[in-house]
Design a protein around this nucleic acid. Sequence first.
DNA 1: ATTTGCTTTTTCGTATACAAATAATTTGTT
DNA 2: AACAAATTATTTGTATACGAAAAAGCAAAT
Lengths: 174, 174
Amino acid sequence: MSADRPHLADVNASLRQLMQLSQTRSKKIRKETGITGPQLLAMKTLADSPNLSISELARRIYLHPATVVGIVDRLEGHGLVERTPSKKDRRQVNLKLTRAGKGALRKTPVSAQDPMLAGLEALPDKKLKRLAVNLSKIVKVLETHAKGPAPKRRRGRPRKEESLPKKRRAGKPA
Amino acid sequence: MSADRPHLADVNASLRQLMQLSQTRSKKIRKETGITGPQLLAMKTLADSPNLSISELARRIYLHPATVVGIVDRLEGHGLVERTPSKKDRRQVNLKLTRAGKGALRKTPVSAQDPMLAGLEALPDKKLKRLAVNLSKIVKVLETHAKGPAPKRRRGRPRKEESLPKKRRAGKPA
DNA sequence: ATTTGCTTTTTCGTATACAAATAATTTGTT
DNA sequence: AACAAATTATTTGTATACGAAAAAGCAAAT
């Protein structure tokens, strides 16, 4: 195959496996707790910082807002998270854990609190720290070369277009 | 929250960023070449080893056969890959790159040959090697704990598993 | 030969994940 | 105030990704 550099393939395989493991782990958690990895992460973040908006939550868990909408939809469907319209900005919604959500989070085994963390808890602190440092280095390298995600260029020029009277805005009846 | 260990959160954030970067990278490749990361990986594998079956291809790229079916469907839809029924076993199909597929693969810039590799090519060999070693260590740790970290012995009858209540929301009716 | 059991591909359902488009609102400019 | 630009949440469309089960074929046992 590629007459690439010697270790490029190794790195790539490792990264692939890493992601594969995360996927598998997520499925397992779902079977055990009924909640998926990303959902759990969202709940944990909301437990730490209530009343986040969709965008802010998305930023904190490194996901696209559109993805977070789906995750929150499902969590809300299960009665674990609640949307409330924001008073300050009527475009925004405030996300909060419901009582059931907090309870579910409390009941979740620590080993399942995050997709990849189960295997790491057994590590001694020294190794863990080294791992954290190494990983963040890797990420930094890849990030710089991937043209940082910061310059979020908005180009949504409002357009005049008739469409279906479909609207679901912040104020939810439910 | 994961305030129990100091570096656990860092590691987790890095891993998440890693996966998010891969996703972003894949999308960018798609915009440039019209082919996504997984599709590219499948094509590369078929270029190396023609006439693979779905299962075998799935094994080689660490994916579920059901996932590979979709990937091959799309590649075939673009005329890049061809399914031919196997003579030996009429259940199987043989996968091959078409002429167009080979051409497309040849035209793909090396820097896009894999989702995460673009940023790594600029690294000197020493760093790259260290990175490879570190990564494979990480993977190994996570892998072991993902395989059988729970020596929980269960006595008695296996429980019938129960899925949780699902709620419908506006979806697309195909 | 029929049954039983396994493998292989496919289909279905669910859940990420992102880009682009849209709707509603807020902010800034004139 | 009126108009333009930027923001926010959502919808739509496409592509992974997996598990479960259907559909078809193969192989060994009875």
